[in-house]
Design a protein around this nucleic acid. Sequence first.
RNA 1: GCCGAGGUGGCGGAACGGUAGACGCACAGGACUUAAAAUCCUGAGACCCAUUUGGGUCGUGGGGGUUCGACUCCCUUCCUCGGCACCA
Length: 802
Amino acid sequence: MALGNKLQSSTVERKWQEKWEKEKIYSPISASPEHPYYNLMMFPYPSAEGLHVGNMYAFTGADVYGRFIRMQGNDVFEPIGLDGFGIHSENYAIKIGKHPTKLAKTTQARFYAQLHSTGNAYDWSKTLETYDPGYYRWTQWIFTRLFKQGLAYRAEAPVNWCPSCKTVLADEQVIAGKCERCASEVSKKKLAQWFFRLASGQRPDGTAYPESLLANLEKIDWSPKVRIAQTNWIGRSEGMEIRFKIEDSNLTIPVFTTRPDTLHGATFLVLSPDSDWVEEFTNEENQESISEYIKTSHKTRFSKAKSRAKTGIFTGKYVLNPLTGKAIPIWVADYVVAGYGSGAIMGVPAHDERDRDFAVKFKIPIVEMQPDESLWVEIEEKGWGERHINYHLRDWLISRQRYWGPPIPMIYCEHCAQDGKGEQKEMPGWYSVPEDKLPVELPFVENYRPTGTGISPLATDPDFYKTPCPGCGQEAKRETDVSDTFLDSAWYYLRYPSVGTSAAAWDPEVTKTWLPVNMYIGGAEHSVLHLLYSRWLAMVFKDMGLIGFEEPFTRFYAHGLLIKEGAKMSKSKGNIVVPDAYIAKFGADTLRTYLMFLGPFDAGGDFRDTGIEGMRRFIDRIWSLYSQKGKKGTVPEEVKKEIVVKMHQTIKKVSEDIAALRYNTAISAIMEFVNLLREDRAQAASAERDAALRTLILLLAPFTPHLAEEIWVNGLGEKFSVHNAAWPEFDRELVKEEEVTIVVQVNGKLRGQLKLKAGESKTQAEIENMARNDTKISSWIVKDSIKKVVYVPGKLINFVTG
RNA sequence: GCCGAGGUGGCGGAACGGUAGACGCACAGGACUUAAAAUCCUGAGACCCAUUUGGGUCGUGGGGGUUCGACUCCCUUCCUCGGCACCA
């Protein structure tokens, strides 16, 4: 067989994509693998523009790694799917006026076609989409399990409200006071919502979930910056909870502080406007002004936090400082947040900058003092309070007043509620939908747009919400909110290997073989959203005996972000670059290699297409190495030797670099190798050249899978497939250069070089003499002025003169 | 404000404390061609001297320091990008 003169990328690429899928070489699940390796990349949410080069950048990087691991003898499972449920998809549907159900169909087809064209080693028999009832049935099942476990609860609370998306948001989805999706200003609204006990939950052994989430970070191999981001987000603080007795009352207000040693300087107490305590101090006199204050504070909740001037209102009541016995005023102010600690603080203006600002503004006394370490003990001994650990992490607000998501599988029965009956004692009237009644299918609702009133569009559909009570059989009402899209993605990795199983969310045997995920590659922007939710849910599953591990991703690698003209690619900025045209013109192999060559994979970069032609030229030059007959004649021995050395050096360098995801330098090493093989002196046929050409294809296979396969099978006549071939090994002896260069320095400056044969062993004295005898070098050394000679064997000699 | 990453030719970027600028893009000159494209070959951090071959000085955001030797380590400062942000 022979290769054509010119590489026809589109034909060749499509041919092999079809062949790979037909031969199922990337479908290892049912093949009882010896070395299972789960190589996962974060699944995309399908926007209607399609996959952009930023997605492709991330996926290619993950695929290169997977292909490398595969060639090292692992059975690599590399799945892909679509995170198509949720606000982002729905907002786009609204914008273009197409129903999300219909839009999902077209974007799915487009995405999968594009993903095929990139040539990744996906297992196309294990795709999943979060909006598929066969998938979200199990998302709902998870919800019901959490409810039964007491980890899902409904409560009325002030929550983040996005006026544009017309829904509530979890804390993690509010970025600098703005909606993570649409960038609108977020305000606070008091609504009854479902929460997961991400922060307040306890493990069977009594450990708080945040504690385990924090402790486990030490055990997993994750990009440090993501671990740090999670640590900060979980935000552990050690301190004390101190009780302040209300004057003329038996009630005490608990306050969390990390500085109990400054208790003697506490001259006031501040309640968050959202604290339940506020009601306690509201009377006819101050009612109007307090509720007015709360209202305005909700509106300005997030705006420019630090620079904001302090505001507040005095309740007219006092508490007693347990240490000084003095009555100190109780204020309400929005610089205290409700969800942290007890929603109340002691104001120590002499010590805390914020408290000082507040005290100055409202003319509250400032008592200067020195912190007193002994108070830690005294407070506990006197029974004023005790040691306490607080977390920044909050419970996960799961409800969304939207259409495009899995309906929350809960039913509320008024009759049972009145009788105090229900599935959970604490929540009378509430029942989870029985497992055999799942999924609660999302009905087709013509007017799916958010209502803006705090209730979901599903609440307008009686056919949907009217249902018999699972407890008493009388008419009851379904929950009409849907769940957060981050719940969909918090467990998808568990489903992939079990796609096709309808009896369970995941097959226990398959799960045992394939999980946890060996390598997870994705964007660092998910540090505190997806990655934290996934970890928590896995921990919960472990505690419920549903899986055998508690950390879902053994290794996580954060890739860099590919941007365009300094900005993240986004529809609103209109800077989305779609790979299709590049793939059509240059081939997927060229684009893949180009993207991986841009710079370090963890650094990302600015996408420019200058230079992509150059990468295509490189691909063509490789092609011509195999399509053209070698030159006649013989190759000198030293050139043969040079080829062998370079080959082994390249294997070493490329292997090490890919293992560390340093793709740009791996590619440059391959380029150097190609450059040598293209030199005239190396052209003539020889066994060494043949070995080099074969090795080159193996090294290229992860980057240019189609080109490598075509040359492997049709150029070299090897057995299909190169992607099942073994990764080449290097010989430690043959990596060594023939000739060693010793750098000669005088006072640290380069003054000359000495060339030595590799095997030659020289003493320092001999090297020194050689250097002195070199006229060029000796001119720099003034006689008898040498104070010191530094010699690094095989590397360098440095003469230090006085 | 706090945390994290980073500042190297015209550009993307390489460099276990040991020859700074690998590899590539863009560029320039040459070969091939009637011509162009494609391809191939050659050159190249800046500056200075010799200008044929060479040789030297400076140079990794700025300023200090450690070291025989610093892009690399330490201190300090400026700038850029990302994350968190009144969390007590």
